[in-house]
Amino acid sequence: MKIAVCVKQVPDTWAEKKLDGGDKTLDRESVDGVMNELDEYAVEEALQIAEANSGEVVVVTMGPDKATETVRKALSMGADSAIHIADAALHGSDALATSLVLAKAIEGKGFDLVIFGSESTDARMSVIPAMVAERLGAAQLTFANKVEVTGETVKIQRVTDYGYDEVEAASPAVISVVEKINEPRYPSFKGIMAAKKKPIEAVGIGDLGIDAGQVGLAAAASQVESFESAPPRAAGTVVTDEGQGGVQIADYLSAQKFI
């Protein structure tokens, strides 16, 4: 069984995220990058499925050179090899272009499963797994909090507002997993050392048969026109409870017509 796990390097959760004043894209240079937290669950799920089905896990990422750190982390957790798509032409790519690049990097390589985290903590669109499924014509099994693989059959529990749907498909399938589906392992010292020797294939868009005009900021189908810092919230009233705190809040809620 061959599994692709798609990971993204994002600004550290604690970093202040900023848009670049010039081209209005996320400034990824001035902040520390980490593996998107939800992708750690995707890597763990891929490893567990591979371990149970004597499979192979290939890490796939699209991002600038520094995203290699995130690739190494996935390799040190136990993935076998990686494909790193880095190309100056990709800067500013929208979801349409990103899904195209990932689909082109994945298709034709015989993957049975493609696993994603359900969203990135920077853009937070959570559309890429569905878009890659659409492009590959593969089954979409997304927002899984449980994945069961039996031979060619893949079953998931898809999280819904009311509980969950049980969804089933034959592989190949595109899966996205939600937080807490598993407990991502920490890379061991041995894993970190082994990762240094694992192959990372560097891929440009030309290798994928993609033209520079199809990707990047200039090709984006939507444009950021302007941005500004959100106005700070007006300072509120803070009181110390002296026995009437609940009543004081109720008075405030009454004044605001909530009750």
Partner: peptide, 16 residues
């Protein structure tokens, strides 16, 4: 906060 109370929630919340 638009309105905040510094206090023990187990006193404030049931009262609210």
């Amino acid at each position: 906060a638009d309105y905040g109370v510094v206090g023990d929630l187990f006193n404030v919340v049931p009262q609210l």
